[in-house]
Design a protein around this nucleic acid. Structure first.
Length: 658
DNA sequence: ATACGAATAT
DNA sequence: CATATTCGTA
């Protein structure tokens, strides 16, 4: 139990609640001094011990210094420098404290966003003191959850937040709620007893690395730095009960192996573009690359682990591959640039690393500090998605011309959640190989071809959005692609599958120009939101530095500008000249989904749980005529070709087919 | 003695 | 396959 836990352990006894809420430590955040003062005053009237700050950043720092110094956080939503949601995310991720959002805006979407991001409450202003008098309940609830978790499985803290119940750590065979299960377990234990020994040898319950758990893990690793992250420290940072060093070591092993793989892939397909000598791409070498990574990473961890900042740059999930603007490029040691570009490739490889469960990842490229984020614009599209960018322009693809960029990856994610509220159309964003030739090579080298069911691949009408980033070493790029994949709904809560998938690179083997044709996934929005952060997280620290360095670098290269333009062409949704709009893309996707739905009614719909998808998209489906369908398909493919040609014409490093 | 991490087992 | 366990090492 944490300090807080001890502090309030009496609460679980009974009577001795003495003066409980009195002195509860509240951290109040609001950038507006006046509002802050008001809030602070009210909180004090409630006899809380209030710490007030007008900077979310500052608040974060304070929390990082000692997360146990506060019992609850209450923050304004609208804050220019770092909005409340971002703050909320970071706090939830790093400190796991209850967070209350405060806003004058009662927009359901906003509230929903807050709640889905893990806020324990969302208070509308003007807030009455009576309301504040009650907030201690969240602390209690949290503590109770924690203590309950302690009694059964390790750290289920998130489960108590309702919105994140799916994230809890489950220890197999040990989750006592289910009577049947526990009975069964008991039975088995007894049997084991009878058969002698085994009693003490009773198997340890299996730790399930849920998204939430993994998120913590990654946060911890990021905080520590890859090289210095060792199981014990990680455990300490994660603050999760019941985790053993073995558990963490094992997971760390896998995690590292994943990173190594990424590095390998990157090295492979970036080939000689990796001059700084990451040739055989071993983990060790990656460690050396980490020179650069660490630099950025260190910088990162100064405000948050692993570039989590971008997480709120939610992909415009419904419409576009969530390319979001991100931040400003972070200064990176020039000598690391090449490595960085390598790593970008790495990322791309990783992006491809999906075969089973798809997940949409967004990797904020830049490691900008929150302080620098200005004039953010939050748009809400199709639910809880938001777009933040620096221009106030809700366009998604604005990242090119700037030394900023995000990388999105769509990975496989099992979607077990049965929340019928929404099914999101997840656009798969694939990493693209600037040169499919090389891609093929690497694939062959890996001796691996796609495992995608041919039917999935055959769903053409894919749309590729390519954006490339040239570095001094060549061009790296990512390709965002939409395909259709009604599969992947099977439930897998653990994200590592995608990490561990070494040869996801496959997709490039097929499709248009030897390029990628990938299935689309429908992702339940909520689920996605739960996971996206995590997945992005997986990659963030790995690539954030890289990306930013590439971003910075690309400015030096006129080519990149060109590419940027082409990029922009297929990106900007308001670009009427090309007519590719997010909604158009969406349409493609939708249409495809409809097709697939028709094609595999029984199987897939079952998976889709009662045909919700059908319901949701039915109307759209109707709207989509087959003509439109083809037109878009054509446009998408043309676009793809265009971009590829563009690339080809500029990239002299390409290896040609023999 | 401990903790780490690679290899191996389940 | 993900996670646990083992085992050599520092």
């Amino acid at each position: 139990m944490t300090v807080e836990g001890q502090r309030y352990s009496f609460m679980f006894e009974d009577g001795a609640t003495d003066r409980f809420p009195v002195g509860m430590r509240v951290l109040a955040v609001d950038d507006d001094p006046l509002r802050l003062k008001v809030l602070e005053t009210m909180l004090r009237k409630c006899q809380y011990q209030v710490t007030a700050t007008n900077k979310a950043i500052k608040a974060l720092k304070m929390l990082r210094v000692n997360r146990n110094r506060y019992d609850i956080v209450i923050t304004e939503v609208n804050m220019p420098e770092m909005d409340g949601f971002k703050f909320l995310e970071l706090v939830r991720l790093e400190m796991d404290l209850p967070v209350i959002m405060l806003s004058a805006n009662s927009d359901t979407k906003l509230v929903m966003k807050g709640i889905t991001l893990g806020a324990c409450d969302y208070l509308l202003k003007p807030v009455r003191i009576e309301r504040l008098k009650n907030i201690w309940q969240h602390v209690i609830r949290k503590r109770m959850c924690d203590s309950k978790d302690q009694n059964k499985s390790p750290d289920l803290d998130k489960a108590c937040h309702g919105t994140e119940s799916a994230n809890s750590v489950a220890i197999s065979g040990n989750s006592g709620e289910n009577d049947k299960l526990s009975m069964k377990q008991k039975h088995r234990n007894e049997e084991e007893k009878e058969y002698g020994k085994d009693d003490e040898t009773e198997k340890k319950p299996c730790v399930v690395w849920s998204v939430e758990l993994h998120r913590k893990f990654v946060a911890a690793v990021n905080q520590l730095g890859l090289e210095t992250a060792v199981p014990m420290k990680i455990i300490a940072l994660m603050n999760v009960k019941g985790l053993t060093s073995e558990n963490v070591a094992s997971h760390l092993q896998q995690y590292r192996s994943y990173l190594k793989r990424l590095n390998n892939m990157q090295a492979q397909y970036c080939g000689k573009a990796a001059p700084l000598g990451v040739k055989d791409s071993t983990y060790l070498q990656m460690g050396s690359i980490d020179g650069s990574l660490s630099v950025a990473n260190t910088a990162l961890s100064s405000y948050s682990p692993g570039g989590m900042l971008g997480r709120l740059n939610s992909p415009v999930g419904l419409n576009l591959p969530g390319i979001t603007p991100s931040g400003l490029a972070e200064p990176v040691d020039p000598q690391n640039l090449s490595n960085s570009s390598n790593s970008l490739g790495k990322l791309q490889g990783s992006v491809l690393a999906s075969q089973f469960k798809n997940l949409f990842i967004q990797i904020p490229t830049s490691l900008e500090h929150n302080e620098l984020q200005q004039d953010k614009c939050t748009a809400h599209i199709g639910g809880f998605n938001s777009i933040n960018n620096t221009t106030g322009n809700p366009l998604m693809f604005q990242w090119n011309p700037q030394p900023t960029h995000s990388i999105l990856a769509l990975m496989n994610l099992g979607l077990a959640s049965s929340n019928p509220k929404s099914i999101e159309l997840g656009n798969r964003v694939l990493s693209n190989f600037p040169d499919h030739n090389r891609c093929s090579e690497s694939l062959q080298g890996a001796g691996q071809l796609s495992k995608f069911p041919s039917n999935a691949v055959s769903m053409s009408g894919s749309y590729n959005h390519d954006h490339s980033h040239s570095s001094n070493l060549g061009i790296s790029s990512t390709c965002h692609q939409i395909g259709n994949n009604p599969q992947g709904f099977s439930s897998v809560s653990v994200p590592f599958s995608l990490l561990a998938e070494p040869r996801g690179d496959v997709q490039c083997r097929e499709g248009l120009i030897g390029n990628i044709v990938q299935p689309i996934n429908y992702i339940r929005k909520q689920r996605w939101e739960e996971h996206e952060q995590d997945y992005r997280h997986y990659m963030n620290w790995t690539f954030g530095a890289i990306n930013s360095s590439v971003s910075a670098d690309r400015n030096l290269n006129p080519l990149s500008q060109n590419l940027d333009k082409s990029d922009a062409v297929c990106s900007k949704n308001k670009d009427q000249s090309n007519g590719i709009t997010p909604s158009a893309l969406h349409s493609i996707v939708v249409e495809k989904s409809a097709m697939e739905t028709k094609m595999k009614p029984s199987f897939d719909q079952t998976k889709l749980q009662g045909g919700q998808m059908k319901n949701r998209y039915g109307s759209l489906d109707d709207i989509m005529s087959s003509i439109t369908k083809r037109v878009w398909r054509f446009l998408a493919l043309a676009l793809l070709i265009y971009v590829l040609l563009l690339w080809q014409s500029h990239n002299c490093e390409w290896i040609s087919y023999s």
